[in-house]
Design a protein around this nucleic acid. Structure first.
Lengths: 244, 244
DNA sequence: CGCCTAGTTGAGGTAAGTCAATTCACGTGG
DNA sequence: CCACGTGAATTGACTTACCTCAACTAGGCG
């Protein structure tokens, strides 16, 4: 497969559909503005609907929901190549917030452009549908994590999934990866408290499974981890393009 | 909006996109076979990939994931008009099981036909993308439920969401609805044990919020329920078609 | 009648939460 | 250079929401 450009979006959609020259050119025009955000303050506020989605070019982000009592549930983390706020744009509701975890760079994709592109190039719609389905599969796996796994398995599964995703975009190796998340991020994602996250991480480290210290995740015993967490990455990567 | 037929699929997609005559005709041809399943034994086994998705015409089903230790996480429930196994078909993986909760009737939609329809009628792809996004929004809300709400709020939120969904397809009224789920179903969906579900239901009943007995859910105090569960149905229904 | 499944209730255990104190890393300004 | 402040990580003591085990009831159906 050859590509006239190698943007995160092209790489992502190319995994699902073999893109033609014409389709690649359309994708090129979709990348309107390039924007930067600094870590920390939230980018999109809950309830505020937005007319554009983003594709993450560099950095990490997370999308979350807040509750009245101050609790926060992180729905998922975005790494380079992932969509930000696609669902919000499609459904015209932004019912979640987005936080840049690190400084990050995004390219903006307007909702209107996307819909026009769909009309002219149906395969792009199919590709996006696939990408959205993969995202949903991750949320589903996340749901199983929180609903039916104990804290340690939950953490192990989460760290493995993140590693596998980073691998797919060339940001990790089998033995570990750099990870800018705080224990509070982990807690809000896994439905735990930061304190308990700390204890669980120590437990996993002492068991010789995985070490997460000073921003580095190291798999001390990858195979045992996979076994312990019942991790099956089938939902993350399908071999080649599903549509030729 | 007029329709040459009023199937669950047409009703569902019509909520997102105003369908043309030509598009309606294509949808008609998509409904291949009509099949029936009886309650109980599971329909699609975990790991077994299938070449067709279904649209539920009547009855209830649920999709779930099993864990090695025998635990089960129900991901969502399907009521008439909902897709069954769409994600599996798109991603060519069936990583979850499906259980008919009641006897049910479905219409089959083959993966190949769907992809062809997308090529010829891009708006259909857009419509399905929207429907899939709505499903994802429900899973996200489910995630928040399990991750950050206590058992009672979780249950209240779940019963309200289900009520709102049934309302949309004309199967419930504001004061309650018929519900064939067992306490075990509720437990597996909400990440609890059946025993605890029982206690929580009693608690909600004694607080005068909601009564779930012998297959009937009755909202004893709808507004207080909504407040108690922080229920906001914005993600379920968007006013009219998003694409004209 | 007897069996089976779903629901109900009690007693006691445990995973995870809460509250509180301490340490550590890192910037920033005096 | 050092004092200081701030946010993250760490650890301990105690509480609690939910689980486990176990017994019992109620309804449906051959």
């Amino acid at each position: 497969m050859f590509s006239i450009e190698d943007t995160p979006l092209v790489r992502k959609l190319g995994a699902f559909v073999s893109l033609s020259e014409a389709e690649l050119r359309v994708l090129e025009t979709l990348h309107k503005r390039r924007r930067r955000f600094i870590a920390g303050p939230e980018l999109v506020h809950q309830g505020q609907s937005d007319q554009a989605a983003y594709i993450l070019a560099s950095g990490w982000a997370c999308s979350f929901k807040m509750l009245k009592d101050g609790g926060r549930q992180i729905v998922d983390f975005q790494i380079p190549g992932d969509f930000l706020g696609l669902r919000s744009v499609l459904l015209h509701i932004s019912d979640h917030g987005i936080e840049p975890i690190t400084d990050m760079e995004v390219t903006e994709v307007s909702a209107a452009d996307l819909l026009v592109a769909f009309e002219r190039h149906p395969r792009l719609a199919t590709a996006i549908l696939w990408a959205a389905s993969r995202d949903e599969a991750m949320v589903v796996e996340h749901l199983v994590d929180i609903g039916r796994r104990h804290a340690a398995e939950r953490m192990a599964h989460f760290l493995l999934e993140l590693g596998a995703r980073l691998n797919l975009v060339g940001m990790g190796i089998k033995t570990g990866y750099a990870c800018p998340l705080t224990q509070t991020h982990l807690a809000d994602a896994l439905g735990l408290t930061a304190i308990h996250v700390n204890r669980i991480l120590r437990q996993l480290r002492e068991r010789g499974l995985v070490t997460f210290q000073s921003g580095i995740v190291t798999f001390d015993s990858y195979n045992e981890m996979v076994d312990f967490a019942e991790f099956n990455p089938a939902y993350l990567n399908q071999g080649g393009p599903l549509l030729r």
